[in-house]
Amino acid sequence: MKRLFTAITILIGASCAFNASAKDTLLSLKNLERQRASFIQEMLSAKSDLDTKEKSLMQRQHQLIDMERMVIRDERLSQQNDYLVHRAFSDFDMTFLVHASAEEQKQPIQHWLDSVGFSSTAIINAQPGFRK
């Protein structure tokens, strides 16, 4: 009987160790960061036409939704005392762009531009030249 308990304890310990020894515990967050960077890059890109850009942005937004949810639900992240994780959770508006924009009843693009301080007036008033 004692052997059985020992085996069960080892089994539980092994399953915990398996979870803890996942190669990269920050993978979900890193994926989200990459995907969001790509989304913003696409958004700021002037290369493609408007229709193609909109379709591509919607596609990326759809993927972002899943990734944001994965990160928020990933309990391994909060066990990591990592700067990336701290930075991500201390700024919900910028990290979880799609969900934060829904809270504000805005498009993610608009929400991001507002968060970084871009406005139509600021763009119109902008002048080419050296930073003052």
Partner: peptide
Amino acid sequence: LQQQQNNARARMEKVMSQVD
């Protein structure tokens, strides 16, 4: 961090249906 994640989860769950 756990508290921040819990807050993030609560905010996400509020708008999930809206996003979908």
